[in-house]
Design a protein around this nucleic acid. Structure first.
Length: 191
DNA sequence: CCCTGATTCGC
DNA sequence: GCGAATCAGG
């Protein structure tokens, strides 16, 4: 894969949106997060929004790799922008459209299966697991966290399982059990 | 262990 | 210019 204008554009957009290099890499496909980071640097668009935001990249001194570095010319300080603190109170949560926020989810989230189609064993297992679920938020989902949704998305009582997924699957073992039922099994149980 | 970005350096 | 390897850190 090469960096076509289109791909670079996507890279810029996503990086600007605060997406991680790995997420961008997955979106683009054919490249690793290293490639993305390398490109980001070559494009000279490293530090993202300095203002508020989740980024909060701490200043890395990089003691190891910094042979040349700067001398001691304190004459040219970096006149900090003195980020305006005019916005004392946090703006209403609804300020940002929170657009599509393309997030992890490799596969589309399946609808909650009807209770009557799930084997009693699997159901019991799930109820048990949900007690110790990590209860993570949408933003915290990764390819290795169970993406099983729990609760009502319209309320505060909503979260994703978050437990370690079962190899190659989008859910933890317990949820894989209720998500992927053999056809024969489903038919036999149907009313 | 999972993840993040940063840097180096051979290609 | 590219990106794997490596580093540093959460």
């Amino acid at each position: 894969m090469s960096w076509t204008d289109e791909r670079v554009e996507t890279l810029k957009r996503m990086w600007g949106e605060g997406q991680s290099a790995s997420q961008i890499a997955k979106e683009l496909g054919g490249v690793t997060r290293n490639a993305v980071i390398g490109k980001v640097h070559r494009l000279g668009l490293s530090n993202r929004a300095t203002g508020a935001g989740p980024a909060k990249t701490e200043t890395k001194p990089k003691a190891k790799a910094a042979p040349k570095a700067e001398a001691k010319p304190k004459a040219a300080p970096k006149a900090e922008p003195v980020e305006m603190k005019t916005e004392a109170a946090a703006p209403p949560r609804s300020t940002l459209p929170a657009r599509k926020q393309i997030i992890p989810a490799g596969q589309p989230l399946p609808p909650q299966p009807s209770a009557n189609e799930i084997s009693p064993e699997a159901l019991a297992k799930v109820n048990e697991v949900e007690k110790k679920a990590k209860k993570i938020s949408l933003m915290e989902l990764t390819e290795r966290t169970c993406k099983w949704p729990v609760g009502d998305p319209a309320t505060e009582d909503f979260w994703f399982c978050g437990l370690p997924v079962k190899q190659g699957k989008p859910y933890c073992e317990a949820h894989v059990g209720v998500a992927f039922q053999p056809m024969s099994s489903r038919r036999d149980r149907r009313r």
